[in-house]
Design a binder for these strands. Structure first.
Length: 226
DNA sequence: CCAGACGTTGTT
DNA sequence: GTCTGG
DNA sequence: CCAGACGTTGTT
DNA sequence: GTCTGG
């Protein structure tokens, strides 16, 4: 889960909501897919929270081949603290991935065939942003280029998501941002306990057009209820 | 000890 | 780099 | 995540 | 079935 999402800003509200000191340029996007550039929020010593563009698809430091990043879009909350691919990132390189919402596909049986119905999930009420829990890794390519990548941590579904899909991204509340982002937070057990499904009251979901299923499609109208 | 893998999702 | 399997 | 491609040889 | 591209 969480293989497609939305970040349209506006950037001024993004900076405000996440209390960013600096933020990279970001063009509104309504169909962000793995392997593309995404905006992450990290905590820099002496500077504070900054927004930075990185590639979605985690390439661990030790990887000899960047191809592993094609598979690591998500990390399971249940095992992220132990898996070799994620362990050191979980201990020292946590980030937030800001989103206005994300998509999930629901398998629907129709006349003996399975159709994939896309849903859009956004904050309930007048909330503007969700904060997905993510990891970062810095990798040096054989050519010597520094490549920073990210992935989204997933967990079991809450009551809103359960009818739609078996997984959902871990969503953190503003009160958790500081401790999650602080590289000095080394209490892995305490951090791991935060990786739980969001309360039902925090999100709402509605059906959208299957046009979102093709990652080439873009635009605000992908959010229209269908 | 060394060698080899290192992951998630969804579907069957 | 670190863990698992042999 | 889903959609769409998935190949070689020899010639230009 | 599996990999790549978006």
């Amino acid at each position: 889960m969480c293989g497609r999402y939305v970040l349209h800003g506006p950037q001024s509200r993004l900076r405000e909501h996440f209390d960013l000191r600096e933020c990279a340029e970001w063009q509104a996007r309504y169909n962000i897919a793995p392997q593309s550039e995404v905006l992450v929020i990290r905590q820099r010593p002496e500077l504070g929270r900054v927004g930075q563009r990185v590639r979605w698809g985690l390439i661990p430091r030790w990887a000899k081949d960047a191809a592993i990043g094609l598979k690591l879009n998500n990390a399971r909350a249940e095992t992220v603290a132990e898996k070799p691919s994620f362990k050191s990132s979980f201990e020292r390189h946590r980030c937030l991935i800001p989103a206005n919402g994300f998509y999930e596909w629901q398998a629907v049986e129709e006349g003996g065939k399975t159709r994939k119905q896309p849903w859009y999930i956004r904050p309930a009420g007048d909330g503007e942003f969700l904060a997905m829990a993510g990891l970062l890794a810095a990798w040096k390519s054989p050519a010597g280029a520094d490549v920073v990548t990210t992935c989204v941590i997933t967990t079991t579904p809450n009551g809103v998501m359960a009818p739609i899909h078996e997984r959902m991204p871990v969503l953190l509340a503003p009160g958790q941002f500081d401790a999650w982002l602080d590289p000095a937070s080394r209490d892995v057990e305490a951090l791991r306990r935060w990786l739980r499904p969001a309360p039902d009251a925090e999100i709402t979901a509605y059906r959208v057009s299957s046009r979102v299923s093709n990652a080439r499609n873009e635009g605000e109208d992908l959010l229209a209820p269908a």
